[in-house]
């Protein structure tokens, strides 16, 4: 169950999307996410769907992987849809007891759901096609101007990429510790909030001890391999915009134009 989280799980494939500069992908994802909040009509929805579909196709990552991340937002999705459905004023279509479902409500709920789903899928595409290191490289380079303001950009991005590498490991470890404690009769499910929190102690203590130990080991290993901060480091995969990146920016601009046009031309 804990292994289902795909965040930070790179899916190795050789595709155009994989090969794009991480900065391009970051900007692209950002633009796509923002565009989702622009649209209010089926035409916009269609444009976004076509765009997302094309990107997923091009990424060569199985569709199942994209959708997996959705499971974690199912509850949120249901709640959002529920409230949108009932609380939007407009032309009534259905009346159950004191609750009215309106035409606008249905549309609103539908768009909201699509927006949320595309939001997750859109960012999942990025994390599945970009190694976390590459991603942080992109951020490091993209945010490099902040260095002048004494923001430790390199350190922060290093921390992020390490965190991303260790999240799956710590997840698995959490699972193992839970099982080890359950074998001793620990109960992580029943009881009130306070009891539940108290029951977490046998899980959290070993987890923290292990995390600190790993941190210590890792620091030592990095030091042993000559790590001494960002200065004087070269890059194995330096970021240089290629032709395909300019192409991608063009396509992205095209997408923006289309979705805006769709929004203006067909308001519903």
């Amino acid at each position: 169950m804990l292994k289902d989280i795909t965040l930070g799980q790179y899916y190795p494939r050789d595709s155009v999307i994989h090969r794009l500069d991480p900065r391009t992908k970051l900007v692209g994802t950002l633009v796509f996410l923002l565009s989702l909040f622009l649209f209010r009509s089926f035409a916009c929805c269609l444009v976004a769907t076509l765009f997302l579909g094309a990107v997923i196709r091009a990424s060569k990552v199985p569709f199942g992987f994209m959708v997996r991340g959705l499971r974690s937002i199912m509850v949120l999705l249901a709640i959002t849809m529920f409230f949108n459905l009932l609380l939007t004023p407009g032309i009534p279509v259905l009346r159950i007891w004191k609750l009215t479902v309106t035409r606008e409500g249905i549309l609103q709920a539908l768009f909201m759901a699509i927006r949320l789903i595309y939001l997750i899928i859109g960012s999942t595409v990025m994390t599945l096609t970009t190694t976390p290191n590459h991603l942080t490289d992109g951020m490091e380079k993209g945010l490099a101007p902040l260095n002048r303001l004494h923001v430790p950009v390199h350190e922060v991005s290093m921390m992020m990429s390490i965190a991303l590498r260790f999240i799956p490991i710590l997840m698995e470890e959490t699972d193992k510790i839970m099982k080890a404690q359950m074998a001793r009769g620990a109960d992580f499910e029943s009881g009130g909030l306070i009891k539940k929190a108290k029951n977490l102690v046998p899980l959290l203590v070993p987890l923290f001890v292990s995390a600190f130990r790993r941190a210590n080991d890792l620091a030592l290993a990095m030091e042993a391999r000559g790590y001494r901060g960002g200065q004087g480091r070269t890059k194995m995969k330096p970021l240089i915009y290629q032709k395909r990146d300019y192409g991608a920016y063009l396509i992205l601009a095209g997408y923006l134009v289309c979705i805006c046009a769709a929004g203006i031309l067909s308001p519903l």
Partner: peptide, 14 residues
């Protein structure tokens, strides 16, 4: 130097 725990010395995700 190579250490005991393989997980705790690999920094890269690839």
């Amino acid at each position: 130097m190579v250490f005991q725990n393989p997980d705790n010395q690999i920094i890269g995700t690839v």
